[in-house]
Nucleic acid binder design. Structure first.
Length: 488
RNA sequence: CGGGGAGUAGCGCAGUCCGGUAGCGCAUUCGCUUUGGGAGCGAAGGGUCGCAGGUUCAAAUCCUGUCUCCCCGACCA
């Protein structure tokens, strides 16, 4: 028997890794801090990509690709930007190896004149190109997205949530006006919210970051924040209004309708394979992964049961007709007719892999003209009529998608509190964690003090209007409550 | 970089205190029986015990050094 998945309550970190291993999503790689994404994990990522990509194109964006290596000098052109990323860059210094005593060493002769940085993000290399692409207001806007890998040399890593190399998309847009750029920033945040909630079934809070949590080089960083099952927050996506910072750093100007030369306004926005980590920590349970139907690579698995060849033939024929009906409805279905595993094994395997629905067909079902239907999210099993099965499953998948979102939202609401005083804040934080709404005076000093004393950070200043009040720490005026949590 | 833990078969581990032929479970291979919740029986293959020194007749075990990984913190999508 395979190793049981660790109890979530007992050891959340171990449980998280167990879910990933049992679902065959990813492995630790030989290089510390990076990971091998297995076919199961990558199929999930590809589904996420496809949904996001469609949403990007619906909002007028195109895909392009820019280089992996960035000349060191590019990175230093925007002061805030270099400060933010300087400490976590992989640097290429040489171009050759040479064999020495049967091994290899770096050839000192091959030292590069200018070192290359493996991109931690692509603003600089992209804005270097934009300078050449933009002359007139007629060249704007530029609405480009890139699917790529980036490297950030993190001190401490965690599968999917923070790996040294990760996959992501980064949108980089250029606009003629500030208003249009801000509108773009907000539009893409809404795309992320919609993807998180409608596809991942992961409820999020939209907001803007405080100055100290802002992206290096941004004027304003918008974000979506989710709450995980261990009551810690996860930043799930960011959309930055970059102002004219990169245009000025890379001298990107356009001649406007009025004949004036003006700096271009910019945005950038991204989500990464971190979302897979968020998905796992939002829905999974002690039986393993739970996938929302809209993203599950396999939505339905059919497990046939037989004793002899005659039964096998009949059951498989029965199963095939079901499979065909489901396929006709564009449902992704797998018929697990492997001979070398018994049904019990298959049930468990598909459960740990998070397949939303299981259909079991055996001689009994053939005789009674029904099937057994099992939901992954609730683990409920029901005998249902063969008649109308495909439509029933189609509806049930939608229902599961909605139920997952509702359950996750319910969990979040349970763990969201509003407090008045700092004492109350600390109390709630220690007793239940989760999201806490509280008043804050808007200063970095108070923010830092709270972080030092409680390890909680301001996740965001929510976009929805709030009522004014007094800072829970200093008593100074506060425009609205902000969202606090301990975070990943 | 600080604090903790661990490196023994593909995976998970015992053995280390007290030195004496390398073990267990799962997985793998073959055969037969099985199949409605991780199958049973029989047989087989697989490890220079992280690495390097040292002590000893003898080292997975004792000593010294060293490397790696995991967890908690500082940093972060």
């Amino acid at each position: 028997m395979a190793k049981k998945i660790t109890n979530r309550e007992e050891d959340y970190s171990q449980w998280y890794q167990d879910v990933i291993r049992e679902a065959k999503l990813a492995d630790h790689s030989p290089v510390r801090g990076s990971m091998v994404i297995r076919p199961n994990g990558f199929a999930l990522w590809e589904n996420m990509k496809e949904a996001l990509d469609t949403m990007f194109k619906e909002t007028g964006h195109e895909n392009a690709y820019f280089p992996l290596f960035i000349p060191k000098s590019f990175l230093s052109k925007e002061a805030q930007h270099v400060e933010g990323f300087a400490k976590e860059c992989a640097v290429v210094t040489h171009s050759r190896l040479m064999s020495v005593d049967g091994g290899v060493e770096v050839d000192p002769e091959s030292k590069l004149e200018e070192e290359l940085i493996v991109r931690p993000t692509s603003e600089t290399i992209i804005w270097d190109s934009y300078r050449n692409w933009i002359q007139s207001y007629r060249d704007l806007p530029i609405l480009i997205n890139q699917w790529a890998n980036v490297v950030r040399w993190e001190m401490r890593t965690r599968l999917f949530l923070r790996t040294m190399e990760f996959l992501w998309q980064e949108g980089h847009t250029a606009h003629a006006s500030k208003e249009e750029a801000i509108e773009e920033t907000e539009q893409m945040l809404e795309v992320y919210r919609s993807f998180a909630e409608d596809y991942m079934a992961m409820p999020v809070i939209k907001g803007v970051k405080t100055e100290s949590e802002r992206f290096a080089g941004a004027v304003e960083t918008y974000c979506i924040e989710a709450l995980m099952q261990d009551d810690k927050a996860l930043q799930a996506g960011t959309s930055h209004f970059l102002g004219q910072n990169f245009a000025k750093a890379f001298d990107v100007k356009f001649q406007d309708q009025d004949g004036e030369h003006k700096f271009v306004w910019a945005t950038s926005w991204g989500v990464s394979t971190r979302l897979i980590g968020g998905l796992i920590m939002t829905h999974s349970d002690d039986h393993g992964l739970v996938l929302p139907p809209k993203l599950a690579p396999t939505q339905v698995v059919i497990v046939p049961i037989w004793r002899d060849d005659e039964q096998k033939a009949n059951v498989l024929e029965y199963a095939d007709t079901i499979k065909k009906e489901l396929t006709d409805l564009d449902i992704s279905v797998k018929l697990d007719d492997r001979e070398n595993y018994n049904p019990g094994w298959k049930f468990n395997e598909h459960e740990t892999a998070g397949i939303p629905l299981r259909v079991v067909v055996g001689p009994r079902d053939l005789k009674n003209n029904n099937v057994e239907l099992a939901r992954r999210d609730t683990l409920d099993k029901n005998i249902v009529d063969r008649e109308g099965l495909a439509e029933r499953i189609d509806n049930l998948l939608d229902e599961i998608q909605q139920d997952l979102f509702d359950a996750a939202k319910e969990r979040r609401e349970q763990k969201t509190n509003t407090v008045e005083t700092y004492d109350e804040f600390k109390q709630v934080l220690d007793d239940e964690g989760g999201f806490i709404y509280a008043h804050w005076d808007g200063t970095a000093e108070t923010e830092e003090q709270i972080k030092e004393e409680t390890k909680a950070t301001i996740r965001c200043i929510p976009l929805e209007d709030g009522e004014p009040g007094e800072c829970m720490v200093t008593g100074k005026p506060s425009e609205q409550r902000v969202l606090f949590a301990r975070a990943y």
